[in-house]
Nucleic acid binder design. Structure first.
Length: 152
DNA sequence: GCCAACGTTGGC
DNA sequence: GCCAACGTTGGC
């Protein structure tokens, strides 16, 4: 099993939105970066992910979710009316992919970005490296577990 | 709103 | 294939 970190702007879609979704599940749409896309491709059913809130007042690891459907074409890329429309992505050979994720839990104590920066065990995290802009990234099992521990 | 760090685009 | 210009991300 692998572990991941998924970024989402809570103003657009938050951990609460996920918990209130039908079946507490949603499709992870709109990834338009090749490296992030390749990570989506690696995800397997049962993998777990940190749900991270970014671009907001309280940047934090907000909870965890689980991969419940492996990669399939991101259909929002085919829709001219969608904000993530990409005319270069063809139905015959889709450029962009999505997975389905299911809510597992919202942290009682969200783990703030500054909190993670202060934790020596998390210093190697991709998230903390300067200039990192990936919205989907792998995270070590130990780091995942450390963040969960901090949220208790 | 600022701006550093990336990714993408397109002329050559 | 190089690289300047431009667009985007994301913390602050």
């Amino acid at each position: 099993m692998k572990y991941w970190l998924l970024k989402s702007e809570p103003g657009v879609f938050s951990i609460d939105d996920l918990s209130k979704s039908k079946n507490q599940t949603t499709y992870w749409e709109g990834v338009r970066n090749y490296q992030a896309r390749n990570y989506l491709r690696e995800m397997k059913i049962g993998d777990k992910a940190i749900f991270y809130h970014n671009n907001c007042a309280s940047i934090c690891a907000a909870g965890i979710c689980e991969i419940v459907k492996e990669n399939y074409p991101d259909f929002t890329a085919f829709d001219p009316d969608d904000i993530h429309y990409d005319p270069k992505s063809r139905k015959e050979s889709p450029t962009w992919l999505m997975v389905d994720v299911k809510y597992l839990k919202k942290f009682n104590n969200p783990v703030t970005l500054s909190g993670m920066k202060e934790n020596k065990r998390l210093q190697k995290m991709r998230l903390l490296q300067t200039g990192n802009r990936l919205s989907v990234m792998p995270i070590a099992k130990e780091e995942f577990e450390e963040i969960v521990r901090m949220s208790l």
